[in-house]
Every structure is written in C-alpha cells, then in structure tokens.
Design a protein around this nucleic acid. Structure first.
Length: 304
DNA sequence: AGAATTTGACCACT
DNA sequence: AGTGGTCAAATTCT
C-alpha cells in the first residue's frame, strides 16, 4: 500500500491529540510487554492481549492519520469511495482519462479502510461496489478467492452502518458456505481452539424460554438441554407447525461451540420472505436468515 | 507479470 | 423504470 501523505500542514489540533494519545498508549503497552517478557511475572498477565492492544493503538493512529490526510486531499468528499463510487447507472460521467486516473489514485490510497475492517480467515476478492438506496455508504461485494479454482460459492456483502460516529461498524452478510479447502482447515482450527469467547449457542433465560411473539411468525425455544430443534409456529394464517432442524445447520459453522446451552438466545421475526434469528458471538450479534427452514444467509456486525 | 481493486455496464427482479 | 447483484475491462499494486 502506498503510504498516505502526512506532510500536510494544518492537521487539526483534535486529530493531533488523538494521534498522540494512541501513540502514547501504544508506547506504554509496548514497554509493559517488554518488561513482561523479561520478567517471571509474565504468567500473571496476558502478553497476547497486550500485543493486541499495541497493534490496536498503532492501527488507530494510522487510521486517524490517513483520515486526516484524505480529508485534506479531498475536503468536499466528492472523490471519497464511501460517498461517490459504485453504481454508474444513469450517470453522465465524462470519460476524461486524466481525471479518472487521478481519481483512481486517490481511491487506492484509501483502500486500507475497508480491507482492514473486513478481514476474516478466508480469502476474499472484491468484485463490486454499489450505492444502496437510502444508505450513506456504499455496499461492497466480495467473493471467495477460490471461486474459480475450487468452485467455492461463498460471497459476502460489507456495508458500513449508519450513525456510528464513535465507532465505525460494518454489517457483513455472508451468503453460501465455503466449500473450498480453506474452509475445512479453518473449521478444524476453530473447533480446536474453542474458548469462552465462542460461548455462542444458548437458550434464553431473559425470555424464560417462552414463546417470543412477533408480527408474523414466532419461534419457540424450549428451555432444556434437549433443545436441539427449533419449533416454528405460524401465528397468523394457517396452522403450519413444523420443526426446523436448525441445529444441524448451525453445527456447520465451525466457530460455534455446540456444547454450551446457557445464557442468551434471541429470536427475532423476519419479513415476509424469511425469518431470522439472532444470538451473540461474545459481544457481537450474529443474525441468521432462514428461508424454508434452511439458513439462507447470516450476517454479523463487526466494529472497526 | 500476476494479483487485486475500481467502476462502467449489464442483467434479473419487482 | 428503479434497484441490487455481478461481470469484466481498465487500472493499480506488489
């Protein structure tokens, strides 16, 4: 990646303050890590957590610097990818090659923002970006890098959420499971390293395991250890009442620990075409979209 | 040179 | 006709 140009004079005082704070925090954490690694007290602390904190500080600093540089280079945001890229339909853009080349150059310089916030263990290739109606930020489209060599059909859509001033959040929708060889390796790795942070599948005590009413459909969540199936009850038209073998579907997601059945488990109603349910991956929600008793897609919210 | 991204164009759906 | 999803040529990065 080409480094951002930080030679501009006039970076706002507030930005400088943030950068300084982050760098100081990073330096402090680095110093602590150094002493930890040198002392026998390392067992009482978590060097990995410290290293993560250091990385976060430096990443944050770099991000702030790049944002500031981008702000100075295109103060009206007319060339920023989040606000002015994507769908060309109906546009009357003049194909000025010089101007287009300059625009591309600036777009490339800001690429890090998206890639840095959408990393997971799979290889993704961006194949499109669209401006979405009533959305401030465009939606980016990614496919598995093994789409052609292994026929993996997994895709994901990434969209920055609105109204997250203090923390940039991205809604990431996953469509189709990975079938590439990478997938089985990742699943095996995740299962092997299962920890409390993957205490995911559990059933509600806040709702007392009772029927959770919705506008159209409701899900019943039996509050017992035998809760291997989810019962879907249609409460409006008709009297369909069929079990959805959701659990077998969920087991396919290797990062889920299937043995813990306590704490929170929320269902939410969906729209006319698909129901959805939500549970928590640590502090982050994961929402599954169900269609015809199958998981059609799932999405999660990731913070920057 | 090959990989990756950007973006105008196209397509399907409503 | 409007919209979201995908394709593919052009461009940029490594």
């Amino acid at each position: 990646m080409e480094p951002a140009d930080f030679s501009h004079a006039g970076i706002p005082a507030e930005t400088r303050r943030k950068i300084t704070a982050e760098l100081l925090s990073g330096r402090q954490s680095a110093a602590r890590l150094q002493s930890l690694l040198q002392s026998a007290a390392a067992a009482d602390h978590d060097p990995i957590a410290l290293a993560t904190k250091i990385l976060t500080s430096f990443n944050e600093s770099i991000s702030i610097l790049e944002s500031a540089a981008a702000e100075l280079s295109c103060p009206d945001h007319s060339l920023c990818p989040d606000l002015d890229s994507g769908d060309s339909r109906g546009s009357t853009a003049v194909k000025n090659h010089q101007g287009r080349a300059n625009k591309r150059r600036r777009l490339m310089n800001t690429r890090v923002v998206m890639t840095a916030t959408t990393e997971d263990k799979y290889g993704w290739r961006k194949y499109g970006q669209k401006v979405i109606l009533n959305a401030t930020y465009p939606r980016s489209y990614f496919r598995c890098t093994h789409k052609y060599d292994q026929g993996c059909r997994a895709t994901k859509h990434v969209q920055r959420m609105e109204g997250m001033d203090s923390e940039i959040m991205y809604k990431i929708t996953y469509i189709c499971d990975h079938t590439c060889s990478t997938a089985s390796q990742i699943i095996a790795s995740a299962v092997a390293s299962a920890s409390d942070s993957y205490n995911l599948i559990s059933f509600s005590n806040s709702h007392n395991g009772q029927l959770i009413e919705g506008t159209g459909h409701s899900f019943f969540c039996p509050n017992n250890d035998d809760a291997m199936k989810v019962r879907e009850t249609t409460t409006t038209s008709g009297s369909t009442n069929h079990e959805v073998d959701l659990w077998s579907e969920l087991k396919d997601f290797g990062s889920l620990q299937t043995t813990t059945m306590t704490n929170q488990y929320y269902f939410s109603t969906g729209d006319d075409d698909a129901d959805s349910l939500m549970f928590w991956n640590g502090c982050l929600p994961i929402i599954f979209v169900l269609a015809f008793g199958q998981i059609a897609a799932y999405y999660t919210i990731e913070s920057k």
